[in-house]
């Protein structure tokens, strides 16, 4: 890892100001950024730790929404979201391993938008809102492809606001070495219908499976998915599995999620 200047601002304004410098980079939990820097795939001149930003780490349920601070760890979400939004708590409690969950944060995961990250599936499936220091971004506009988001330079995720689904389930087929999903599906039964988001599978990152959404909105049962198959084009093919294999897993994981809820 190349060396860098390290700073730990005590306010969001200070962090935003520091971020204006060229090659400055935010450090959240560091569970992706530090390994990336070790590989010299990232070499920021300055790292801005978000650790000391006040009111950055919380889980707050209000009415039918759950708001989570950008700096909240996966462990906190798995423990504190359990009663209000069990589907999300269950997802958070299965990211990586316990030590990773103690450091990694929801804001870091969403800003990175790894095509196989877990959180994007929940954010997209519920139509959550990503809140930054400047604006609110709806999930359907936030994710813009592999490692690409709607975030502008100098923008920091301060919170994520989820509408709490009537019922939800995340089913993950984990790649056993990395614990990232090979394919994972988040099924959310929302007020206005069912939404299904898929992570790990597509070269474009997280996406919604609209055919499954329509079928499940009409009839919420695993039988409604019979005969539906996601096409393999655009799916990730690598040593862990072909595009056809991942496409098949989308159907399997979606069905498992629905079976869990019915």
């Amino acid at each position: 890892m190349y060396d860098f200047e390290f700073m730990k601002p005590s306010s969001l304004d200070e962090a935003v100001a520091a971020l204006a410098e060229e090659d400055a980079q935010l450090l959240a939990g560091g569970q992706t950024l530090l390994p990336t820097m070790k590989q010299r795939l990232a070499m920021p001149s300055k790292l801005i730790s978000l650790k000391d930003i006040p009111d950055f780490s919380y889980v707050k349920a209000e009415g039918d929404t759950l708001t989570i601070g950008g700096g909240t760890t996966h462990r906190q979400v798995s423990e504190e979201a359990e009663s209000a939004f069990p589907g999300l708590a269950s997802l958070a409690g299965r990211i990586g391993d316990p030590a990773v969950r103690n450091r990694g944060t929801i804001g870091g995961s969403l800003a990175n938008n790894d095509p196989a990250a877990c959180y994007p599936a929940a954010v997209l499936a519920t139509g959550a809102t990503v809140i930054t220091n400047r604006r609110e971004i709806p999930a359907d506009e936030y994710f813009q492809g592999m490692f690409t988001t709607a975030l502008d330079e100098g923008e920091i995720i301060t919170a994520v606001r989820f509408p709490i689904p009537e019922a939800s389930r995340y089913e993950k087929f984990a790649q056993p070495a990395s614990r990232f999903p090979m394919v994972a599906c988040f099924v959310a039964k929302m007020n206005g219908g069912v939404r299904v988001a898929v992570t790990g599978a597509s070269e474009e990152g997280v996406f919604r499976w609209s055919e499954a959404e329509e079928a499940l909105t009409a009839t919420f049962s695993a039988d409604a998915l019979e005969g539906l198959a996601h096409p393999a084009n655009g799916m990730i093919s690598d040593i862990h599995g072909s595009g056809e294999y991942r496409a098949h897993l989308i159907g399997v994981m979606t069905k498992r999620a629905v079976l869990h809820l019915t």
């Binding site: 560091g30 530090l34 790292l47 730790s49 650790k51 030590a99 990773v100 103690n102 450091r103």
Partner: peptide, 13 residues
């Protein structure tokens, strides 16, 4: 009090 991977945390953190 929480388990962390010390190869993936900066000393300054």
């Amino acid at each position: 009090g929480q388990a962390v991977k010390s190869c993936t945390m900066l000393a300054l953190e």
